[in-house]
Amino acid sequence: MGILDKEFSDSNIIITNFDNLMNWARLSSLWQLGFGLACCAIEMMATSASHYDFDRFGVIPRNTPRQADIIIISGTVTLKMALRIKRLYEQIADPKYIISMGSCSNCGGPYWEHGYHVLKGVDRVIPVDVYVPGCPPRPEALLEGLLKLQEKIRNESSVKKTA
């Protein structure tokens, strides 16, 4: 269901509840932090370029965390980078969402065993909302991940906390 509960056709009045309106506004303009890490960043760029067109979901890259709503962690998180990612995350205003893109940021990926300088999953430093598997995930998989995130936002409530 969309945001409309009731519409009065002869005037510009619609009736909806607060959560629906807020969630609708949030999920359809998820501005992402323009931030690429590794191989997956190239697929993320391909997703936002001409063929896959991330813009149609309202995802526009912003250059500063203060204007962003989501971060797509696109690639291997190293120990050196993890502290910076945490700081970037803290700079984003609430509500904020994280998509972990690719095996590396999900769990360390191919570097899980001998990677002395690789963090085995970005969820060790920041909370993650959606995990997108793949090495690297295809742009379609990233789009699917975004749709999952939108679904999650759609069911949020400002009164009762959901998981």
């Binding site: 120990l79 502290l83 769990c107 360390g108 065993e113 002395y116 963090l119 085995k120 060790r124 430093v125």
Partner: peptide, 9 residues
């Protein structure tokens, strides 16, 4: 560990 982050899988 490095700076409080666990390194092994």
């Amino acid at each position: 560990f490095y700076q409080g982050m666990k390194i092994p899988y």
